[in-house]
Design a protein around this nucleic acid. Structure first.
Ligand SMILES: [Mn+2]
Ligand SMILES: [Mn+2]
Ligand SMILES: [Zn+2]
Ligand SMILES: [Zn+2]
Lengths: 145, 145
DNA sequence: AATTAGGTGAGATTCAATATCAATAAGGTT
DNA sequence: AACCTTATTGATATTGAATCTCACCTAATT
């Protein structure tokens, strides 16, 4: 939507990489909405905007963004990875409707703490976690009746 | 290990399906260990035991077992589904070591309850959840030093 | 402008999982 | 026990997300 609030160019260069049109385009596209999009979606969105890019480059660029903590990779269980920009967002986990695909975001401080306790109990060093609540959203539950 | 403690034949027939050697073999194989195995692993284990079966049938049979709540399907994030027999096991979630693949099981009543509360807050009908703590196990953390 | 090494894109490749369909076997009938 | 019907199986092809290959391109420095 607006100009990038993060100096991607600086981050890219700091990594010893080149700041290309494609890399900027993928980053801007990911920032342009707060939804959970797959690589194909990013690819088509860019082509629609007459931006020349290949699938391979979309995947490669996303990987760079993920490694630099600018983008989060999600496995929502439907066989393809989803991505969301981390810019301006705090950590959260997801509620997923299996019928319509609706995704809600939640955060629960208590659960976050308990995860740390559990990891400590098992002598695990926690680096990440996956927590998804699967079910039917309000609308879809009504449809079931 | 021992003979089946569940009357798979009855369950299969109740579904209007036929009780075949292959279906019995997959079920027995899944019961024979408490590990989290992928389809390929089941397939080779059976062939090793000179049981004639194809990959397709392994996949198809597992799906039947999953649908009948005898087996749990897990996505541990490595690109292939894992399966564990539900027989004799209570619900639990997993700690996963990203280095050695070690899997520990945990259960936390408090977290289970909080999940229900969160779902209620968002008007979701909870049918399932995915909860994995990702990190390094005791051994692998030591290796990092 | 010339140089050069990293980046890109079209297409091939991988790999788990599923689909196809002729051959087979489960299980009820006679 | 031989027979029939039809679900099931297995060899193979196919799908689809993701990655790899490598000739060509371009960002960035001189
Ligand atoms: Mn999110
Ligand atoms: Mn388990
Ligand atoms: Zn829904
Ligand atoms: Zn480990």
């Amino acid at each position: 939507m607006n100009s990038p609030q993060i100096d991607l160019r600086a981050i890219i260069k700091q990594e010893g990489l080149r700041y290309t049109q494609q890399r900027e385009a993928v980053w801007l596209e990911l920032q342009s909405s707060d939804s959970h999009r797959d690589a194909e979606n990013i690819y088509f969105a860019l082509r629609q905007k007459s931006i020349n890019i290949s699938r391979a480059t979309v995947y490669r660029t996303i990987e760079i963004l993920v490694k630099n903590n600018l983008v989060r990779k999600l496995d929502l269980g439907d066989g393809k990875n989803r991505y969301e920009s981390k810019w301006g967002l705090t950590h959260h986990d997801h509620l997923i409707c299996t019928k319509c695909g609706r995704i809600e975001e939640f955060f629960h401080e208590g659960i976050e703490e308990m995860q740390k306790e559990i990891a400590a109990q098992y002598n695990f060093t926690l680096t990440n976690h996956v927590h998804q609540l699967i079910g039917l959203c309000e609308n879809c539950r009504a449809d079931e009746a």
